[in-house]
Amino acid sequence: MEQENEAGETDSRHPERQDVYDDFGRIRGKLGIKAWKARWVKRKYAFDMKDVPREAEWMKVLYSYEESQMPMDASSLNIFRIFGTNTGIFEIFVLQRTIMGPCWLVIKDVNIDGPGISWCKLQASVSSPRDMRPMGDGVPEPPPFTIMSLAARTVLNHQENKREISCASGGIWRDGMHYLRPLYLLFMYCTVRLDDLTPPEQL
């Protein structure tokens, strides 16, 4: 890394861990991020950025999703690039717990929650993501499912200044995810073009 000293001269040096740590402390301070922790880890890189080494030591930073999101282009004198600033919490969860698609899960230390979070009859939570993991060998057969998929298109009601559903389609499948046999499709056909700009009251 090239760095300019007090005399205006440039020299190349490798930043120390403390330099990176202090720089990140200044970046998070400007964003108002209060509680955070970090440690140094080795990671491999497999994508197309040529200025990123294939394997290197990185400072892994953890802080709450309730704090401000770090900008993707955040950098400093000793920090060239920051990865994972816009990674969602669900993506991190399924990657760390190796949950690859629909599967049976082993869940321990479950807390039964009260109503109000979803439309499910039973709602439960765990205090740590480590309390959930995919079931190993000998998993049961998939349970019977009835699944409905809906798709809708909307148009703008200029008189009331809100969007309204102009057509919808749906499909229902039974007998679990392995079969997905469609039972019927329901269509509501539009009598106008979806991209027609004519106000509804003039049609």
Score class of each variant (00 low, 15 high):
Ala38Tyr: 03
Arg39Met: 09
Trp40Ile: 06
Trp40His: 09
Trp40Glu: 12
Trp40Thr: 10
Val41Tyr: 03
Val41Gln: 11
Val41Pro: 01
Lys42Leu: 03
Lys42His: 12
Arg43Gly: 04
Lys44Glu: 14
Tyr45Asp: 02
Tyr45Asn: 02
Tyr45Val: 03
Phe47Thr: 13
Phe47Met: 10
Phe47Leu: 12
Asp48Leu: 06
Asp48Ser: 14
Met49Cys: 06
Lys50Asp: 15
Asp51Ser: 10
Asp51Arg: 05
Asp51Trp: 10
Val52Phe: 06
Pro53Ala: 13
Arg54Lys: 15
Glu55Pro: 00
Glu55Met: 08
Glu55Gly: 06
Glu55Ile: 05
Glu55Tyr: 07
Ala56Asn: 05
Ala56Thr: 10
Ala56Gln: 04
Ala56Gly: 11
Ala56Phe: 15
Glu57Leu: 02
Glu57Asp: 14
Glu57Ile: 11
Glu57Pro: 01
Trp58Lys: 00
Trp58Glu: 13
Met59Asp: 08
Lys60Ser: 15
Lys60Leu: 15
Val61Ser: 06
Val61Asp: 09
Tyr63Trp: 08
Tyr63Gly: 08
Tyr63Ala: 10
Ser64Glu: 12
Ser64Trp: 04
Ser64His: 07
Tyr65Gln: 00
Tyr65Pro: 06
Tyr65His: 07
Glu66Ser: 12
Ser68Asn: 13
Ser68Gln: 13
Ser68Thr: 15
Met70Glu: 07
Pro71Lys: 12
Pro71Thr: 05
Met72Trp: 03
Met72Ile: 11
Met72Asp: 15
Asp73Trp: 10
Ala74Cys: 05
Ser75Gly: 05
Ser75Val: 00
Ser76Cys: 08
Ser76Ala: 15
Leu77Met: 11
Leu77Tyr: 00
Leu77Pro: 00
Leu77His: 01
Asn78Asp: 13
Asn78Thr: 15
Ile79Trp: 08
Phe80Trp: 02
Arg81His: 11
Arg81Asp: 07
Arg81Ala: 04
Arg81Thr: 03
Gly84Ser: 09
Gly84Gln: 05
Thr85Trp: 04
Thr85Lys: 01
Asn86Val: 09
Asn86Glu: 11
Asn86Cys: 02
Thr87Pro: 01
Thr87His: 03
Gly88Trp: 02
Gly88Leu: 08
Ile89Cys: 01
Ile89Phe: 00
Ile89Glu: 03
Ile89Pro: 00
Glu91Gln: 10
Glu91Thr: 13
Ile92Arg: 11
Phe93Thr: 07
Phe93Val: 09
Phe93Asn: 10
Leu95Met: 12
Gln96Val: 09
Thr98Phe: 11
Thr98Tyr: 06
Thr98Glu: 15
Ile99Trp: 02
Ile99Asp: 02
Met100Tyr: 04
Gly101Lys: 12
Pro102Gly: 09
Pro102Cys: 10
Pro102Asn: 07
Trp104Gly: 12
Trp104Gln: 09
Leu105Glu: 06
Leu105Val: 08
Leu105Cys: 11
Val106His: 04
Ile107Gly: 00
Ile107Glu: 00
Ile107Asn: 00
Lys108Ile: 15
Lys108Asn: 11
Asp109Ala: 14
Asp109Met: 06
Asp109Glu: 14
Asp109Val: 05
Asp109Cys: 06
Ile112Gly: 01
Asp113Thr: 10
Asp113Pro: 01
Asp113Ala: 04
Asp113Met: 13
Asp113Gly: 01
Gly114Thr: 08
Gly114His: 08
Pro115Trp: 08
Gly116Ser: 07
Gly116Lys: 05
Ile117Gly: 01
Ile117Asn: 02
Ile117Ser: 01
Ile117Trp: 03
Ile117Met: 04
